[in-house]
Amino acid sequence: MKKQTIHVTINGTEYTKTIEPRLLLSDFLRHELGLTGTHVGCEHGVCGACTILFDGEPVRSCLMFAVQTDGHTLQTVEGLGTPDKLHPLQEAFHEAHGLQCGFCTPGVLMTLIPFLEKNSDPTETEIREAISGNLCRCTGYQHIVDAVKIAAHKNTDTN
């Protein structure tokens, strides 16, 4: 099949790549760019592990074709913090033990970043609804919810 060339900005870096249209965005990130922080669990939209930001909104990267990102701006978990300088939300996860194996974590974080921008002081119900599209097999979700509350308070304290 005819390959197509795309220009896409990911975590502030511009990439120009020539790809097959059938390449999933999740596989593009992981295999073509080596951005393996985006995890792949189910590849049919159910688990949420592959969630990234597409023009600022959380979406499933397994349910988009990479060609569709031409001219758009993406952010993946690699764009949050670094091991030496974690993003405040990552710090909160560290503090509250919001992860165990960490498989779901990138998708959970990328779901929560815009959520916290829009809801500076969310209720527990709102938090649980926000992460309803992210499956976690380890934590039982409680520590994730705790981490979100910590992160929200950090935000309001600094503002």
Binding site: F54, P58, V59, R60, L63, M64, E129, A130, S132, G133
Partner: peptide
């Protein structure tokens, strides 16, 4: 609408 799938799915 809040019953239709999850926020990430509703964005697309």
């Amino acid at each position: 609408m809040p019953h239709v799938a999850h926020p990430q799915i509703r964005n697309r």
